[in-house]
Each structure stands twice: as structure tokens, then as C-alpha cells.
């Protein structure tokens, strides 16, 4: 009986093992930024713009930290960019990541970013690689799915819930018109959607510690991407709004029928 009981205890403890999680973060203009372009509409005008951690990446980071707090383990962050992204990396360290890696490259597209991250992460034995569902600047939604393909890992894309149970990933993801519950083994790539968790505000202790946490810079390995942003443009300005008196609100329906042929 005793041996059976101790066997039962070991399997229980074995199921809880330290996790190694890599979170991909990118720097994006703050969500309230008024977007403008320079150099004949070929470059984003970054003057006076506040850069933040991409909000979806921040959710991925927070959930990664929660998972390592439950399961044990460590969260590392990786970003692809020049030295100007280091302030947001320090912020990620202040939120709780243990160390940071910056691939020193100006990537052209999501494919290039993902290839750089895959080249770094391939032999590091991460259980989970997490990222935001998309960046709020280029809205590509490419890095997570490409990483899963390049590394041959399972993928849970646009996840609103992620848990680890008995060494497996249990997650919920958005699908058209609903949600799907899925389960998969690790290693796995998970991309974060709103609802995954509440973002964390770094505390003073975290901010102090972040200054001395390791931030490693590694050289780029990918030559160049296969796409290039040729030009940018702002949407055409809308004409003046046509106001309808609230007392005759029903007229709106007639205007939509007659002027726009919509109803």
C-alpha cells in the first residue's frame, strides 16, 4: 500500500515541472497616436510619438508570468529591433520577465521577425512561445503562426484562455462567431487575445530590479525579408456628416434606402 501511495505522490509532483516560456514583444506607437507619414509618405512619422509594448504582447507576457508563478519556471522576452526599443524591453523586465534578448535588426516584415526568433529559440527548449495576436501597427498577425510552422510546434492562435494541466496546454481560442476549446502538448505557440488576463502595472521593486536584469543583444541571422512597404496613405477624409433632427429620426431609414440603397 505504502509504495502505491508514494508512487501516486511522485506522479502528482512530476506533473508540475518548471516551465520555460519565451514571449515575443514589439514596440508600437501608443494607441492614441495620430498617425502621420514623412519622406513623401514612405515612412511613419515617429517624432513626438510615445512607443509602448504592443498591448497584445503585454497580455501574452502577463499570462506567461502567471503560468510560471503557478507551475514554476521563468519567462524570457525577445524582440527584433534596433537599440531604440530597449525602453519597452526594460518595461517588460519590470513587469516580471527574468531576462531579455534583442536581435539587432531592422526587420522588413513579420516573416523576417519570426525567422530571427525561430533561429534563436530553436535549440533553447522552450515549453511555450507566446506573442500577441497581432501588432497594432502593421496588424499582420504573422509571427505566432509562422513560428509554429518553422519550429514544428502546435499552435493556439488568438487565445482568450490558456492553462497548463497535467503537462498539457488547455486553451480557448476565438473562431468566427464563437470560441473553441482545444488541448495540445508542449512545446506550443500561443498568441494572446483580449480577455487572456488583466495587464500588470510594474511596481517600484520591479522597476529597480529591471535595471540589473540581463539584456542580451545578438546579431541578425536573416538576410532580408520578401516584402517591402513602398508607401503609406491616410484614408480619405469623410465629407460633412448629414444631421437628421431627432424628432424625425425615421427619416434616417428613408435616406439609407434612397441615397445609399442599403436597406
Amino acid at each position: 500500500m505504502r509504495s502505491k501511495f508514494s508512487y501516486f505522490c511522485t506522479t502528482l509532483t512530476e506533473k508540475k515541472r518548471d516551465m520555460k516560456i519565451l514571449v515575443c514583444v514589439s514596440a508600437v506607437p501608443d494607441t492614441t497616436t495620430k498617425i502621420t507619414f514623412t519622406e513623401n509618405n514612405t515612412k511613419f512619422n515617429s517624432s513626438g510619438v510615445q512607443f509602448i509594448i504592443n498591448p497584445y504582447d503585454e497580455l501574452a507576457l502577463t499570462r506567461a508570468l502567471e503560468l510560471t508563478e503557478q507551475q514554476g519556471g521563468e519567462v524570457h522576452i525577445i524582440t527584433v529591433g534596433d537599440a531604440s526599443v530597449e525602453p519597452i524591453m526594460r518595461k517588460a523586465l519590470a513587469i516580471g520577465a527574468a531576462s531579455a534578448i534583442r536581435v539587432d535588426a531592422q526587420a522588413n516584415d513579420g516573416m523576417e521577425v519570426a525567422m530571427e526568433i525561430a533561429a534563436y529559440a530553436g535549440d533553447k527548449g522552450y515549453d511555450l512561445i507566446m506573442a500577441g495576436r497581432e501588432s497594432i501597427d502593421f496588424n499582420g498577425g504573422q509571427v505566432g503562426p509562422i513560428l509554429s510552422e518553422l519550429l514544428g510546434y502546435a499552435l493556439v492562435n488568438i487565445a482568450t484562455k490558456v492553462d497548463i494541466e497535467n503537462g498539457r496546454v488547455l486553451a480557448t481560442r476565438d473562431i468566427d462567431g464563437g470560441r473553441e476549446k482545444v488541448s495540445c502538448t508542449m512545446p506550443c505557440v500561443v498568441t494572446a487575445q483580449k480577455d487572456l488576463c488583466e495587464p500588470r502595472i510594474p511596481n517600484m521593486r520591479g522597476i529597480m530590479q529591471a535595471r540589473t536584469k540581463p539584456l542580451q543583444v545578438i546579431p541578425a541571422t536573416v538576410s532580408s525579408g520578401s516584402t517591402a512597404y513602398a508607401s503609406f496613405e491616410l484614408p480619405e477624409a469623410k465629407g460633412a456628416v448629414k444631421l437628421i433632427d431627432a424628432a424625425e429620426a425615421g427619416k434616417l431609414i428613408d435616406l439609407l434606402r434612397e441615397e445609399k440603397k442599403l436597406i
Binding site: I35, D137, A228, Y229, A230, S231, F232, E233, P235
Partner: peptide, 13 residues
């Protein structure tokens, strides 16, 4: 791009 605040023309190479 920029969450519907702009458009960009992309070259595929």
C-alpha cells in the same frame, strides 16, 4: 495598417 488608421502599399518580392 495602424489598426485601420492608414493603408500601405506593399511590394511582394
Amino acid at each position: 495598417c495602424y489598426s485601420n488608421k492608414a493603408f500601405t502599399t506593399v511590394q511582394l518580392n
